[in-house]
Design a protein around this nucleic acid. Structure first.
Lengths: 343, 343
DNA sequence: GGAATTTATGCAAGCGATTGCATTAAACCT
DNA sequence: AGGTTTAATGCAATCGCTTGCATAAATTCC
């Protein structure tokens, strides 16, 4: 079946394609009468403008790209991603944008994907997540003047549009909570070490230790990936130590769940009695694991929402773009993994 | 900065744009020499073909649309979705496709979204999920000859490309497992009642009861949505009954987790001693809840993979499309929610 | 060595929209 | 009434790429 084009509509309505085009984009130079007539014909013919032709002519796709770095191997399994997506989609849907999930094609690395979808002009803008140190994606986007918003932070530039939480402060508070429960041997287990969010959380953790005059034990800082298996593996390492930790701060729930699994398997230690656990992101995992896990609610859905709002705003106004950084609230959700019976 | 176009490449390489285009699409009519020369220039100029122009000319977008019905209010929160996405993305990335997440724009219903992204020619094909009775999306896609693959089943047509599990059999087996543990008062809690997957699972449940001469109690079949809160709410209903169930089959882990929460809050009943729980989808939730939940692993990632493979195959060959249905394995993962201590 | 193939490339017409500018008709002045 | 605005629409170029067909050059054949 042949697609209905603007020409068909124009002919049937007895106007030119320019007029149809102007009706579609609701140009106010068109008289009410013609507008109605054209709309009627459009309805009748079941006309939809071809989006490729449209993009080609006006250089807008009404698509925004969501980029998740693949160094988090199983990014698609971390509930954090899903919550961000949820937030993003709620905003894009209100603004007639669609979402393109950028995935690495065979042989591409992260930067390649980004380059590809931007240069081929598949998207109008980007939402970047999980930045790392000297993040190439951010650098590239900035240098090439590509509209984007970062969910997270960036150490190299401070004039990039972003939304984030105060992860350092959150980590400080989370660690302090453990310290206030009397723990002194606190480990920090993290994912990818170059991820900014990890670094910030680590810093907050260190600050808390220092502030309470607790000596930093190098054995207590280990990292791998943002995966459950990593948590499991890393916890095995910790259990080999002579001086085992009595509390652990995890950089992510998924990791924490792995840690917890390993502890349970040891059959020698209990959470929270022997080892307290505290984590980040407050995903559904923290809520339902056993015991439930104290976790920092970073407001992931909101991060997605704010980021897409900001991006869309910047896309719409052709003027100076808003390069500010927005800091969202966080909240430590206290659960059983840090709650002793006698409390 | 002006974008580099095919013209620029052509000029610098001293050839026509046709030649450049043919190099891009790796046409074998081009001599090795020119090919190399052109590629060199492309590299040098950092050329990427404009995807809108490309789509406009050849009517292909290399994007596939992933459609999740919004009646699952919080579809983006159900880990099932994420696992499917993971599977899909692993395949698309190997085949140079990108994924468009279709979300309802303001004022649109599910069918509208589908129509829009198809008619505006934003995507080459669709992956539909979670079909319901008289599913309009399927009907529309079929009637309009739109390439698509369904994850799930469809009662109305049997010649549509699909991948699914034998949910009826799985439910039968799952229910039988409970019966074999001596349970007779088995309830079935489900999401959206018109969802095909729910219907099939319900049928399997009924079959199991009948086969074991257990009378069907209408009070034991209740449904709402695919949400945790629904499970919570529905369980409250069940607890009001005089004759309370001693086992529950849930149509989805998310629901089950809500059910479990409600049971725990009652402080009167224990899982699995008083009430056994069995569920579907074997998401990360089932694995980490307390107690862990027996759940049917439906191989969600694989569903996503197979579906996208099938779709891409159908897109590539212009010949007769493969309208077969593929049934994937499932596996009941037995966990604590059906495991008595004395076993 | 010239006809017949084969191989490699270019020409130019699309693809289906948008948009600056020109045009015409209607409305407004004085 | 004649000139000037203003409003409504059309013309035609353009966006950047693909592709059927024509053409030119190189190769093969007898």
């Amino acid at each position: 079946m042949q697609k209905v084009t603007m020409k068909d509509v124009a002919k049937l309505a007895g106007v030119s394609t320019s007029t149809v085009s102007r009706v579609v984009s609701d140009d106010d130079r068109i008289s009410q009468d013609t507008k109605e007539k054209v709309l009627e014909v459009m309805e009748k013919l079941n006309y939809y403008p071809n989006s490729a032709a449209r993009s080609l002519a006006n250089k807008e796709t009404e698509i925004i790209g969501l980029v998740m770095p693949s160094y988090e191997e199983d990014i698609f399994i971390n509930p954090f991603f899903q919550e961000v997506l949820k937030g993003v989609s709620s905003i894009t849907s209100k603004n007639s944008f669609d979402i393109l999930i950028a995935t690495n094609h065979e042989g591409e690395d992260d930067l390649d994907v980004l380059k590809r979808i931007v240069q081929t002009q598949r998207v109008d803008g980007l939402i970047l997540t999980r930045s790392k140190k000297d993040d190439e994606g951010i650098k590239y986007s900035k240098e090439h003047n590509i509209p984007f918003v970062l969910i997270g932070s960036c150490l190299e530039y401070d004039d990039i549009p972003a939304v984030d939480n105060d992860n350092k402060q959150a980590a400080y508070n989370l660690t302090s909570l453990l310290i206030n429960k009397g723990r002194r041997k606190i480990a920090f287990i993290s994912g990818e070490i170059n991820s900014i969010v990890t670094l910030k959380r680590y810093k907050g953790y260190l600050n808390a230790l220092q502030e309470h005059d607790i000596e930093v034990n190098d054995d207590y800082f280990i990292s791998d990936e943002f995966l459950e298996e990593s948590g499991y593996k890393l916890m095995s390492e910790l259990l080999k130590l002579n001086d085992k930790p009595d509390a652990i701060v995890c950089a992510d729930d998924l990791i924490c769940v792995g840690v917890l699994k390993r502890i349970k398997e040891s059959k020698k230690y209990n959470v929270p009695e022997d080892i307290m656990l505290a984590s980040f992101n407050n995903t559904i995992l923290a809520k339902y694991s056993n015991p439930t896990i104290t976790s920092v609610d970073i407001n992931s859905v909101q991060l997605g929402k704010k980021a897409s709002k900001k991006l869309i705003n910047n896309l719409n106004k052709k003027s100076k773009s808003d390069n500010s950084k927005e800091i969202l609230d966080y909240k430590i959700i206290k659960r059983d993994s840090t709650l002793l019976n006698n409390e």
